[in-house]
Design a protein around this nucleic acid. Structure first.
Lengths: 328, 328
DNA sequence: ATGAAAGCGCTAACAT
DNA sequence: ATGTTAGCGCTTTCAT
């Protein structure tokens, strides 16, 4: 096992507190002593135990991050943003995956809460009440979710939907379908609401085709329903679902965008690689993560700062899956 | 802040030690007291602080897992396997992503080591020496890597490559290219070695086309080199790279499998969704993760068990990207 | 069956 | 500039 601070103290012929101070670069210690302590520490391979330190300082140097599904390419993007920024601030990030399970998420939150300085919850599946309770217990930042005035970063989903509808309307589409995600998804509700408002404004008929799993298979399952609805374009809850849609369209001999236009959401890496490449409403994933960490730091520094909120721009990326509506 | 064990003790009218015992389900406590304590704990919303507990028991109930890149769909699969099994054993898993950076990996290992009961390193980029040093410090299980007798789980890459070559040889291919991954990848060396052996046995010419980034862009970049080499089939380091290859082939008007056959490795979810679907050597990702956790538990229970090693079967999945070699 | 006391490894007053 | 004391929240002897 690792050497303790006492071992170092003995080796350097000083007291444990001096070791602590010397290693913390306190300027209350004589340079000579610092040098002696560092040598002793190095030769013993001493590494301070962050757990013991955390017990007393109340700071662990860790950030917890919880996401619903690392298998969905959207989340690794956000995770990377969080990690990059956290690294700069010398925080380690502990990521946990909830498998889209709210109960599991609750357990993970409880477990993590005591061993991190702050928790970043991305697309949480918890209820508003549960989130309020968590926020009372630990510094909390929400990504892709808004509850009361818990600090949060959200993409401007409504505006993204507005861009998508404007684009489709300009291409002549008058009947646009939407395949929604899980009912419990806050982002999903935002998107549908944005779609409704934009459709009304643009004079487009929005056909709500139901809720589907936010997965490739969810899209496959939704595809036939889309085709039966007689829409000339469809907006999917996310890119993964859009890809499933396209896969089934191809199998049924429906060509995109000639027969039907498809718009995804998120801009996962895969979206650009599909054939044709997917038109999608890009959510800034890394920036979302980075902004989350920035919020954490503000939160941790000024005890009880205002409750900052940030909306991130989304951007429609027009690629190959949207085209003019077919005459007739 | 959360209630402490003392608050509960006071509320229940007992001593902290009794609370500790009552909550630990010790049978040395009277049922009545247990009940009283549980009530008090519940009403205060008390959750034992795992950090403080860990300091004394030496067990944290946490597992650390480190992967090179969560953006590569292979790793989330393994992570999910680890998490599923860990959950059963009531462990929380802290995942960290190293961005393929060995130095960062080393830092994360140090940081994590003291706050977890064991570390699972997947496709580690550290050197053998570094890994030996880590193993001396913390219970360590390697995935996709073998070093001395550090406990490890590895897929049978060589056999997978054998299957791939046998398949291609049966289709009439006599000149097969390989686009290798990063030189520092242990799995990559294993695969190339397996390919060499299998090619020799099968009487196939193996053309080693160099090392490329294990990414979509890496594949795109490799594609022209593949075409210039005049091979009728190519085995890529992994599926992501194979998809990049295919993308560039399509752009150059080379059709798969008519003009060239492509084999990937890993069987990421995307592989089945490409067009045509990718023939690939499947690595059992979730089983890999689960087996890793099983190893951890054995390691933690029997102090210094033998050094278990497990090879997992790989399986060639023949799909749409391989076909008979063209005459001429 | 329960309480008191000691201590995990560390840092932060409080002394000098 | 350094040592001594106390204590973070918890578990675990050792008493009773």
């Amino acid at each position: 096992m690792g050497a303790t601070i006492r071992d170092v103290a003995r080796a350097a012929g000083v007291s444990p507190s001096t070791v602590s101070r010397a290693l913390a670069m306190s300027d209350l210690v004589s340079p000579a002593t610092i040098e002696r302590v560092r040598r002793a520490a190095a030769s013993l391979g001493y590494e301070p135990n962050p757990v013991a330190r955390g017990l007393i300082t109340g700071r662990t140097g860790n950030l917890g991050m919880i996401v619903p599904d690392l298998g969905n390419p959207f989340f690794p993007g956000v995770v990377k943003g969080v990690q990059a920024r956290a690294r700069e601030a010398d925080y380690a990030v502990f990521v946990a995956d909830t498998d889209e399970d709210a109960a599991l998420e609750a357990r993970l939150v409880r477990k993590l809460a005591k061993q991190v300085d702050a928790l970043v919850l991305c697309s949480s599946r918890l209820t508003d009440d549960e989130l309020r309770a968590v926020a009372a217990d630990v510094a909390l930042v929400l990504l892709n979710r808004k509850v009361d005035d818990i600090p949060a970063i959200v993409p401007d989903n409504a505006d993204g939907m507005r861009q998508a509808i404007a684009h489709l309307a300009a291409l002549g589409h008058r009947r646009v379908g939407v395949t929604a995600g899980p009912v419990s998804s806050w982002t999903g509700s935002e998107r549908v609401a944005g779609l409704r408002a934009a459709a009304r404004t643009a004079g487009v008929d929005l056909v709500e085709l139901g809720n589907f799993a936010p997965t490739f298979q969810g899209g496959v399952a939704a595809a036939d329903i889309v085709l039966a609805a007689g829409v000339s374009a469809v907006v999917a809850y996310n890119d993964v679902m859009a890809l499933g849609l396209m896969n089934r369209f191809a199998a049924r001999g429906v060509s995109v965008p000639a027969d039907i236009s498809v718009v995804g959401c998120d801009d996962i890496p895969l979206a650009a690689m599909s054939n044709p490449p997917l038109t999608t409403v890009a959510v800034p994933k890394e920036p979302l993560g980075r902004a989350g960490v920035d919020l954490v730091r503000r939160l941790l520094e000024r005890e009880e700062g205002l409750t900052p909120r940030l909306a991130l721009d989304t951007q429609l990326l027009v690629r190959g899956t949207t085209g003019p509506v077919r005459p007739g």
